[in-house]
């Protein structure tokens, strides 16, 4: 699946976009967040407070319980500030 990071999630993790195989046991967005936190201090810090992180799957806003499928595009970003 494809992972995208925007704004300070991109600058803090140092990653804008990546392709990964769905890790064993990762069934939902929440599972993915927990898996990402274990990757290293940058990811642990970026995903420490999910109240300030929004998630989208296939370009639609989702809650953390949302199930994941192979081939999904999952994006993480802070609350939006356009306009």
């Amino acid at each position: 699946m494809k992972l995208l990071y925007f704004a300070w999630l991109r600058t803090r993790t140092g990653v804008g976009e990546e392709e990964i195989e769905r890790p064993e046991g990762v069934e939902t967005v929440q599972d993915l967040v927990e898996w990402l936190r274990k990757r290293g201090p940058e990811f642990a810090e970026a995903f420490a407070n999910m109240k300030v992180v929004r998630a989208a799957v296939n370009q639609t806003y989702v809650q953390l319980e949302h199930p994941l499928a192979e081939g999904d595009e999952i994006a993480f970003f802070p609350p939006v500030t356009g306009g």
Binding site: A56, Y61, A75, F77, P79, V80, T81, G82, G83
Partner: peptide, 30 residues
């Protein structure tokens, strides 16, 4: 349109200030 755009459309602002670049925080008022 502008109210919904400001809270739903995926744009993010980063300001250049004398202290360096800074990501703008979302406003509760929006």
């Amino acid at each position: 349109l502008i109210d919904w755009l400001k809270t739903k459309a995926p744009f993010w602002k980063q300001e250049q200030t004398p202290d360096g670049p800074r990501w703008v925080d979302a406003r509760a008022g929006d």
